[in-house]
Amino acid sequence: MATFLSREVCPTIKNILLLDSEGKRVAVKYYSDDWPTNSAKLAFEKSVFTKTQKTNARTEAEITMLENNIIVYRFVQDLHFFVTGGDDENELILATVLQGFFDAVTLILRNNVEQREALENLDLILLCLDEIVDGGMILETDGSIIAGKAATSSNMDDGASLSEQTISQALATAREHLTRSLLSYLNHLIYRWCFAAIF
């Protein structure tokens, strides 16, 4: 006799949201059917945003409950990161997913974590979301691996094979640096250098 649903036994992510400082979507991904329509989704985003707006989640991930869901979140500049799970989920697992997403985006945006930069690299951010969770199931939680998967496949140049080589090398170096010291200025210089070399 199946006394429980398989879903309840396995950690499940209901959605991942990246909103701007006015609560508008930058990139969102829903994995559960709890919000069937776009308006339901928008309403959820609005209430999450309003509820968390005044809290300080800039140095440390914060947490709250809404409509029987647990939401962990973190803010950087004008970007708001959210990860939602069911109310019987292990809070620390959700926090790990948030951390993975947050680190990956930081790496992709080269520390310049703000809305405009995010929109300009939207393709990479969407790829990130695709690599973190698949249909609610956690795929990967390590930010640098996620960013690596999204970035290796990014089309960062205009097809010249020589500079493609340079870029992937530079990216690899940069990733190493980033994982060692997440917010180092050095990595910034490498990027500058490599982009200067291309253009």
Partner: peptide, 12 residues
Amino acid sequence: SSKPVLRFAAIR
């Protein structure tokens, strides 16, 4: 703990 998520999980 210094982490809000941990405190929340524990108190809940």
